[in-house]
């Protein structure tokens, strides 16, 4: 303490000068529009650059985990294809590919995917957000769904030229109606109450529904943001309080938000069409 007081007495003059100078510069940054915008633009760029460096460093320690989840995703995607692409036939003739492409040409491409890297992510506040290294220049826009190979991650809420900010599932404002495929039940809302980064609540499911522990929960086809059948999680605990008409369900998230690294932003190619149809602006008189 004595040393500190001695130090303060010795350097009091430069300290006072620095304080007054700092106060003046603070006034400039607050009240002068040009300096204010330059300062914030450069500080945002600076902090994003630091985030990218940090994320590049941390990624190396998660490669094993990332490999594992990518392998699991591959298995799931191969099972979804159901057109026998790799049925013990590593060497096959070209007519095979012709038949596959003919089959695929009957489909419309509803969703486009843009790969991104998470450079900042929080899990410990009541409203969590994440930042990715892709922005308007790469085709990202607010409202796009974000998933990772494990499950859903969130929704994009703001974009700059090269970065975007997303609202994570671990956000009290996030809501989504899920599907329980085992019962074909499309009911309730996913909601995070802020206690645990692996657990969310599934509210508003009638107590008459026979929900069991261990049931898988995925995204439903009712959402125009998320594609159907993206894993959300697994039911961890079901309680049925007598004073409520709804179950009290805890859901263990499929996504590990503490190890969020590579994500996919999903663009619904028919979003405008669906929106205009829903709002009644599409001209249907000729149909």
């Amino acid at each position: 303490m004595f040393v500190l007081i001695k130090w303060l007495r010795k350097y009091s003059y430069p300290l006072v000068a620095f304080l007054l100078f700092g106060f003046s510069v603070n006034q400039i940054l607050r009240y002068q529009i040009y300096q204010h915008s330059v300062y914030f633009q450069s500080s945002i760029t600076f902090f994003r650059t630091i985030d990218v460096w940090k994320s590049n460093f941390v990624t190396y320690f998660q490669l094993r985990h990332d490999n594992e989840i990518l392998a699991n995703e591959n298995i799931r995607l191969r099972n979804q294809l159901k057109i026998g692409l790799v049925k013990n036939e590593p060497f096959r003739d070209t007519s095979y590919f012709d038949s596959v492409s003919k089959e695929l040409s009957n489909y419309r491409v509803m969703y486009s995917y843009i790969k991104a890297k998470v450079i900042r992510n929080t899990t410990n506040s009541s409203n969590n957000f994440f930042t990715i290294d892709q922005g308007k220049n790469q085709g990202i826009y607010p409202g796009m769904a974000v998933i990772n190979p494990e499950g859903i991650v969130g929704v994009i809420v703001g974009c700059s030229q090269n970065f975007s900010r997303g609202m994570s599932v671990l956000n009290s404002k996030f809501g989504l109606t899920p599907l329980i495929p085992e019962m074909n039940l499309r009911q309730g809302v996913i909601n995070w109450k802020g206690a645990n980064a692996r657990i969310v609540d599934l509210d508003e499911i009638n107590r008459t529904e026979k929900i069991k522990q261990g049931m898988i929960v995925v995204t439903s086809n009712f959402s125009s943001i998320f594609p159907a059948n993206i894993p959300i999680g697994k039911i961890e605990k079901v309680e049925s309080p007598l004073n409520s008409q709804y179950h009290k369900i805890s859901l263990k998230l499929a996504t590990n938000f503490n190890k969020l690294n590579t994500v996919y932003c999903i663009k619904n190619n028919f979003n405008n069409e669906i929106d205009s149809l829903n709002s009644g602006t599409l001209n249907l008189s000729n149909d």
């Binding site: 000068a17 940054l29 009240y31």
Partner: peptide, 20 residues
């Protein structure tokens, strides 16, 4: 002077620096 000429902080910062 900043108040009179509408340049918040610029003159005061440079005056403090000059006196120092």
């Amino acid at each position: 002077i900043d108040l009179l000429s509408g340049s918040f902080g610029t003159n005061s910062a440079s005056c403090v620096f000059l006196v120092y």
